[in-house]
Design a protein around this nucleic acid. Structure first.
Lengths: 375, 375
DNA sequence: AAGAAATATCATGGAGAGCATCATTATTCG
DNA sequence: CGAATAATGATGCTCTCCATGATATTTCTT
C-alpha cells in the first residue's frame, strides 16, 4: 500500500547500526569496542550499547583478550558465525555436492555423490537427498537447524525454484527443486542457475573479489555465462540473463565441437596441444575463437571490469588464457582483465552458500531475524 | 578511512524521513499532512515536524486549500520544484538542444541551434554556448542559478566529462565538455553518451516507466544502445557499455548501409517501403535483420523486461516494429516487450535533465544540500 | 441557529537512540 | 610503587519519533 519510501522509526536506526557492527565484525578477526566504533563511525558509548544487545541476542561473542600493549586490556568481540548454519547444494551432471557452512561462509562439512547425466529425475533427486543428508549428519545438524539453503543447477530456473528448461539434463525440466529441498531443510530455499552462482562465488571468494562489474564464463562441456553488475548478481526479468549462447553467430553452440572433433575426450585435446600436437593446437585455437566471440559480445555490451573463466576447462589456463586475451583484444573496445577461476569445482557450491547467506542477511536487515537469544 | 557502513546519527534518520516526504510530494499533486503521513509511514506528528522544517528551508510550500468535504479543511503542501533549476544539453550532429527545467523536471524554456556534422570543434562549442545562453536568458536565469547540468553527446565519454572517442564527429574527440559547460554554469556538470541518456529518459518519462531492466536501441544514421539495469543507468567500468556495434558479426556496422544503398536518404526508404516499393521493402528487411542481431545479443545477455526503439528511425515504427519483433523471436529465449519511443527528438535532452536531477538528489540525500532557505 | 460530527492542528509528555564528559579500573613502564 | 595509558562504566543532555488528548474549524443535521 504505502510505497515504502525508506526512513522510519528510531528502532530502524538501531537496526542499521547493529547491522553495521555485525558487518564490521564479520569475517575479520576479533575487535575491541574502540575499533568497532572507529569502523562504524558510531561513538564508543553507542557501540557499547549495540554490542551489548547483539551479545544478548547471540550474534556476537566475547573473544579472548590479547595480551601485550600498555593500558587496561580491552575486551575483544567477534561475530558468532556459529550462531547459524546454511546449506549449499550444487547439482551437476556428474556429481552432486553439498556443504554446510556457518554465517561467515566457512565450510564445516561437505559431501559429494557421483551421478551420471543419464540418470532419471527420481534417481538424481535421491542423490541430492543423500548428499544433503550426509552433509547435515556430518555436521551434526538436522534440517531444522538450517537457516537457508542455496541450490545451483544447470538450466533456467524460475523465480519459485523450479527448473524451467535444461538442455543438458532433459529429464530435469520441470523439477520443483525448491519444494524438494524444503522437505529436508524447511527454511527458505533459493534456487539458481549454476553459471550465475559460480559468478557470485568469484566476486565473493574468488579472483573477482574487488570487481563491481564482472562477466563469468563457464568453459567446459557446456558453455555459459553469469553476470555480476554493480556488485549484484544480475538475473534478468525471467532469470534468463547470460544466455548469449543461444545466438548461433556468436559461436558458443559449436565451440565445444572443435574439441570433441579432435579427440574423444575434451581434456585430452588441451594436453595434446600443450605437448605440441598440431591438430590439437588448431582445435583449441578454433575453440578459443568461438568462445571469445560470445565473450566479446558480453564484454562490449557490459564493459565489465573483469572476465573470469571457470568450468572444467579452467584447469587448462596455460593454453587458454593468452589466446583468449588476444581474441578479446581483437574485438573489444577496452579489453578487461582476464583471469582464471581459482575455485575449481567448488565455485557453484560456494555461490549457493553465498545465495543462502544473502537471504539470511536480508532478513536480518529487515528485522525478520530468526535468531532470538541462543545463550 | 572508515568504510561507511551506513547507519549513524539521529540527524541521519531525520534526513531520510525528510527525503521520504520530498519524494512523496514530488511530481504528484499537493497533499495534506495526513496524506503525506500515510504515504511515508511516519506518524502525523513527525510528519508535521518534518514538513515544517522543509517549509522553512524552502523545499516545500503551502498550496491553496481545496474546498468540499466535511471537517476542518486541511492545509495542502506541495514540493517547491521552482526552488532550483537544472540545465540539460543535447549535442548532436545536426542540432544542439538546451533546456532549463525545474526540480520536477518540467521544462521551463528550451532552445535549439542547428549545426552540421562538418563543423569544427570551436564552432560547435560556440553553438553550445549560444543554445545554453539563449535558454538561460529565456528562463530569466544566470549560470549561477543552475544547480547542476547534464550534457549528452555522441561518442565515448570518460568519467571526468571529456569526449574520448567520437566516430561521427572526428573533430570532437578530446573535447573537455565538462570544463567548457562549467564556464557558463559553474555547478556540477555531468557528461554522458547520448544513447545512454535516451535510455534514462525512457525509464523516467517514456514508455519504459515501469521497467527495471531495459535495453534502449538508437536506430538512426548511427546505431547504438543504452542499458538500464536494476533501475540504474549502466555505464560500465570505462563508460563503454552498450557498444555491441563493434562486433562485426552482429551486423550493426553494415545495418545502415542497406538503407543508403537503396536510396539516397534513409527516411525515403521507409516511405517507399510503406508505399509498396519491392526494393525498398527488401532493404528495410535487411536492415531489420541486422539491427535485430545486435539487439538479440543484448537481450540474450541481459534478459531485460523491455526493448525500446528510439532515434530518427523510430518515426517509421509501422514498418519497423513488427519485423523486428519477429526477428527477435527467432533468436531470443524470451522475447521482451518491444516498444517505440514516444519522446521523439527530446529523449537525449530529457535524459540530460534526469542526469542533472539525479546529481541534485544525491547531494540532497547526503545532506550536502545547496539550498539554504530561499524565502 | 444550535448542536453534532468530522477532520485538522496544536501541545504535552514519554521512550528510544546516540553522544559528550568524566570518574573508575586494570594494565604496563620506569 | 607511582606514573602513564587505555578501556570501561555512569550520568546527563539532545534529538527524533510517537501516542494521546485538547483545541480549532468546517459541514451536516435537526
Amino acid at each position: 500500500m504505502a510505497g515504502e519510501l525508506s526512513g522510519g522509526d528510531l528502532s530502524r536506526l538501531r537496526q542499521l547500526n547493529a547491522l553495521a557492527v555485525i558487518k564490521a565484525l564479520q569475517g575479520g578477526p576479533s575487535l575491541t569496542l574502540t575499533e568497532v566504533a572507529k569502523r562504524t563511525g558510531l561513538s564508543r558509548a553507542s557501540t557499547e550499547d549495540v554490542v551489548r544487545e547483539l551479545l544478548h541476542k547471540g550474534w556476537v561473542a566475547e573473544a579472548g583478550a590479547t595480551a601485550g600493549g600498555v593500558g587496561r586490556p580491552a575486551r575483544r568481540y567477534r561475530f558468532r558465525a556459529e550462531a547459524g548454519r546454511v546449506l549449499g547444494i550444487d547439482i551437476g551432471g556428474h556429481k552432486i555436492r553439498a556443504v554446510v557452512a556457518d554465517l561467515d561462509g566457512a565450510v564445516l562439512h561437505s559431501a559429494r555423490v557421483p551421478v551420471t547425466p543419464e540418470m532419471g529425475r527420481v534417481e538424481r533427486l535421491e542423490a541430492v537427498d543423500r548428499a544433503a543428508a550426509e552433509c547435515l549428519e556430518g555436521a551434526g545438524l538436522s534440517g531444522g537447524d538450517v537457516w537457508a539453503s542455496g541450490v545451483g543447477t544447470t538450466g533456467l530456473v524460475d523465480g519459485a525454484g523450479r527448473v524451467m528448461l535444461s538442455e543438458a539434463l532433459p529429464e530435469w525440466t520441470g523439477v520443483d527443486l525448491a519444494a524438494h529441498v524444503r522437505r529436508m531443510a524447511p527454511g527458505p530455499v533459493l534456487v539458481e542457475n549454476d553459471s550465475k552462482l559460480a559468478a557470485l562465488a568469484e566476486c565473493w571468494r574468488g579472483v573477482a573479489r574487488y570487481a563491481k562489474d564482472m562477466v563469468f564464463l563457464l568453459a567446459g562441456l557446456r558453455t555459459g555465462a553469469g553476470l555480476v553488475i554493480d556488485g549484484k548478481l544480475h538475473r534478468g526479468f525471467a532469470n534468463a540473463s547470460g544466455e548469449i549462447g543461444a545466438l548461433p553467430v556468436l559461436g558458443w553452440i559449436r565451440a565445444q565441437e572443435h574439441l570433441s572433433a579432435a579427440s574423444g575426450e575434451a581434456g585430452d585435446v588441451f594436453a595434446a596441444a600443450r605437448a605440441g600436437d598440431k591438430a590439437a593446437a588448431a582445435a583449441v585455437r578454433r575453440y578459443v575463437k568461438d568462445l571469445a566471440l560470445g565473450a566479446s559480445a558480453l564484454v562490449l555490451a557490459l564493459d565489465p571490469q573483469m572476465v573470469v573463466i571457470g568450468g572444467g576447462f579452467s584447469r587448462s589456463a596455460d593454453v587458454l588464457i593468452e589466446p583468449l586475451r588476444r581474441e578479446l583484444d581483437r574485438w573489444c573496445i577496452r579489453t578487461p582483465e582476464v583471469r582464471m577461476s581459482a575455485l575449481g569445482g567448488e565455485g557453484v557450491v560456494l555461490g549457493a552458500v553465498r545465495l543462502a547467506l544473502d537471504d539470511v542477511e536480508e532478513r536480518v536487515l529487515d528485522g525478520r531475524t530468526p535468531l532470538v537469544s541462543h545463550l
